[in-house]
Amino acid sequence: MATIADLRQLVSDTKPEEAAAMTGELLAAGHAPMEVLEEGVMNGLSDVGDRFAAKKAIVLDLVRAGVTAKACIPLIQAAFPEGEGAKIDKKIILGTMLSQHNIGKNLVSTLLSIGGFEVIDIGEKNSPWDFYETAEKEGADMIAVSVVFAPAMEKFTELIDLLKEMKVRDKYPVIVGGAVTSKNWADSQGADGWGAQAKDGVALARDLLEVA
């Protein structure tokens, strides 16, 4: 019989089809969706992250792990009971600045969606203008930025400057997170919030958007 630990291993081994199948099995067997997400998918992703930090995995493994998580997440989302993911009338623009990394961003997207927010995921390799333009077009309430390598840090600063220059800085709370960021850095750049982990994004959004 499949266990949560097995799912964690499949995510860690970056096997999307098998991981998705096992996610279905675990949910059908009565495991709570949040348990499957946190202990199976997120812990599996953490394992890949730990291997990467130890130079035992490469960026390509992180990308594949992201693909694996993405295969599991829709099943988990669909399994949340009615009402638990009740819609909140707040729209959040979410994307990765410059780079193609998407694991953290995808997790934040999932957790925000589960939390009831409407997420406009603009994907990877974005410029500051992409965030601004989409926020304006979509009538967003907040911008969330994933910054995972050094050149993107500078671009985050550009985004804050751009929002000021376009006189919309007060309109959009901006939160940031990612491997190379820190609270001190985020504060110094004028971010409204910084998250160390994906789940922090939900708390920040609820707080900044004053969702009860």
Binding site: F52, K55, A57, I58, V59, L60
Partner: peptide
């Protein structure tokens, strides 16, 4: 003279 150069990034798409 052309300056031929390359700087592979280890642990991105290269395992080591």
């Amino acid at each position: 003279e052309p300056w031929m150069s390359c700087s592979p990034t280890l642990y991105a798409y290269l395992t080591g």
